[in-house]
Design a protein around this nucleic acid. Structure first.
Lengths: 182, 182
DNA sequence: TGTACACGTGAACGATGTTCACGTCGATGC
DNA sequence: GCATCGACGTGAACATCGTTCACGTGTACA
């Protein structure tokens, strides 16, 4: 069951990398599959449903590399922030794609909860922990969205330069969090 | 000259608040002005040009309340961040609207430069100052984008509650910056 | 008087997401 | 063997979108 459905999803992600989210058209995707656009609606009730499925698929941890729950809170935040950014940068218009989606699955909610837990364990109040995690996530989203928006422009910074800029900003926030600890 | 042009702009902003950015259609805007869609192209070469003009108009400081250049760096950052957020929240889909635009005018660039200058005057290196300002701006964009996206949802937090969440995250970053000072 | 100019019309074009009635074809149950 | 069912796809259409273009107004100014 749902075998073709998966193929459609795969083709959609492939096409996303080639033409970007604005060029990602039901007709183009269909032709890529040797099919008419109307056939796609057998598998996804709407284009938005397809986009949602893409986000879910891309966000689902691909294999290993879970962040160890016993790592210090700042290391956990660093890893989560870094892999979230990498997730967005891994595909063309990835950040914009993610931002169209808005019902974070249980996976994301669990990750959020873990981070808050790590901070509370380190001595913050629950409220402060939520604020801290929210702040980091807002930073990651804002930074990466802008980073990817400028990507094709003239400002073609080398990759490690951009990584550094991201890390520096993140460390700034982590330092701020650290200052609220006992 | 350009009198009608201004009226079109005004009507577009008015319509934005009523129907949101997705409902903002050239035809609808035209009918609101008692005119056909094609007439709009006498004043703006494209819809994107209209959107750009809206961003510029909304971003242009309306009257007074310039941030005093002799204020401490953290106060300057607080004010800039706060008014940037207010700018976005002032109109429906304001944050999304702003994010479609991407050639920051001399106004924004000057503001950016002022903030960096204030930080350098406080003792940071120029690089660190740029990082700090970038981080704050990324946070404001990320936070406000998400805040406004959830706005019409069930999660209808009261306004001051949302202001507090924003301020707390901002203070976290400011604390982080402060820690890098002599 | 005539000639620019600002402004608007009406019809069309191509593209988009989506719907719907209709086909095809292989597996499954009798 | 035959019928039925389900998964899959077709083809034509619909409404809507941004945009273009040839063509009309009326007003102000030389």
């Amino acid at each position: 069951m749902g075998e073709r459905r998966t193929e459609v999803l795969r083709a959609a992600i492939e096409l996303l990398d080639e033409v970007g989210i604005d060029g990602l058209t039901m007709r183009l995707l269909a032709s890529r599959l040797g099919v008419r656009a109307s056939a796609l609606y057998r598998h996804y009730p709407s284009k938005q449903a397809l986009l949602d499925a893409m986000v879910v698929h891309l966000s689902t941890p691909r294999g290993e590399a879970r962040t160890p729950a016993d790592a210090p809170w700042d290391e956990q935040l660093r890893r989560t922030a870094g892999s979230l950014r990498q997730l967005m940068l891994a595909h063309r218009d990835g950040a914009r794609l993610m931002s169209t989606f808005h019902t974070p699955g249980p996976e994301a909610a669990a990750g959020f909860h873990d981070l808050v837990g790590a901070l509370v364990a380190a001595g913050t109040t629950p409220d402060a922990a939520v604020t801290a995690v929210d702040t980091v996530l807002a930073y990651v989203n804002g930074h990466t969205l802008e980073e990817q928006a400028r990507k094709t422009d003239a400002s073609a910074w080398p990759g490690h330069r951009r990584d550094l800029a991201f890390d520096n900003g993140l460390e700034l926030i982590l330092t701020g969090i650290r200052a609220t600890l006992p």
